[in-house]
Design a binder for these strands. Sequence first.
DNA 1: GTCTATAAGGAGATAGAC
DNA 2: GTCTATCTCCTTATAGAC
Lengths: 206, 206
Amino acid sequence: MERNQNIEKRILWVAERLFLEKGFSGTSTTEIAKTVGCNQALIHYYFRTKEKLFWDVFAPKVEQVVEYLDAPLDESIDFIERIRNVIDFYFGILELDERLAPFIVNELIMNPGRWDKFRDRYLRNESRSTAFNRFENMVEEEIAAGRIRQIRALDLLMNIMSLTISVFIVAPKGFASGECDQNLRKTYLDNRKEEIKTLIVNGLKA
Amino acid sequence: MERNQNIEKRILWVAERLFLEKGFSGTSTTEIAKTVGCNQALIHYYFRTKEKLFWDVFAPKVEQVVEYLDAPLDESIDFIERIRNVIDFYFGILELDERLAPFIVNELIMNPGRWDKFRDRYLRNESRSTAFNRFENMVEEEIAAGRIRQIRALDLLMNIMSLTISVFIVAPKGFASGECDQNLRKTYLDNRKEEIKTLIVNGLKA
DNA sequence: GTCTATAAGGAGATAGAC
DNA sequence: GTCTATCTCCTTATAGAC
């Protein structure tokens, strides 16, 4: 972070880091101000409320993920390969910042008001519908051709997302106290990714 | 709840309900007291701190789940049937109180201190080791006999738990605003359970 | 055992000087 | 645009009367 960026951007930058690390309710505007190096009133001058600051931080991250969602559905390759790519993509996004999955689950899924706002903003819009409809058509085509078993597209997506997100929820915790080795962690992530691909692909067989 | 139970039990009872509904940090000792019908100082008289009250509420629930863990591994039935039973059991536990899964994820997985305490108390003890070792032996036996594909027991368990817990994390939210119909909800849960069984069993094929 | 009163410390938000 | 000062509210926890 550049010390002489404008303060508004520095607040956003610091807030993102602290929200990701300690959650929304675990982060005070006072702490954000102290970390930025300004006073607490300035946070409210720029963003009026803490909740609005949250969305100003959060929205760009969501929109970035939504953008990516269309990419792995490249129709020039085999369907099963596309599914593998979807898994790679989700892993890629969550691996870029490993605090993202716990953050999303904690702040969005757990808070009814936020989830409602999130759904109305990002799950109802056309870009999601088109991406999901494309995906749904692909799945139905494969079923009709007898290349995969009967399954609803939403179930397939839920399976992939549940398995992937869980990896990153559990990852930071470890099953033993001392177990924070980076190599162990990387091995764990890679193993889980391969296992999930195997499970999903194997589980689709007719 | 009986109005003239002793107050200590009433506090536990109310605290459990409020913690499950609104989370630990979303529930104040003042609110617990008000709901119980006593004053806030009494909470501290009986439980000293809010954190200790949390564990007094939480520990029995965990211990109840740990007890159940051994039951579905009945060796007199087919391995695949045992796996189906494990899934039924996890669903059963989480369906008994649908606030349990979000609560566990939120309070335990998200809070490093609590997770450490939880792991040291419940994941390190002998009862878990024996149950898991039994499970691991079963899996290795099936692999050796060529009846299922190569897979680590821990991965199989992670797959089952990830998929199951996610169902209850997403369930209370819904994908549409008005969608809180109990029938829709039950259908959703049953569909997911069947899909998860199909996925896990299909995904185990050699 | 149960109460009132209060300490001691946060929090988010706002008014107004500069 | 940035600051200091402060308001208001709420939290957990404790002291001490009854």
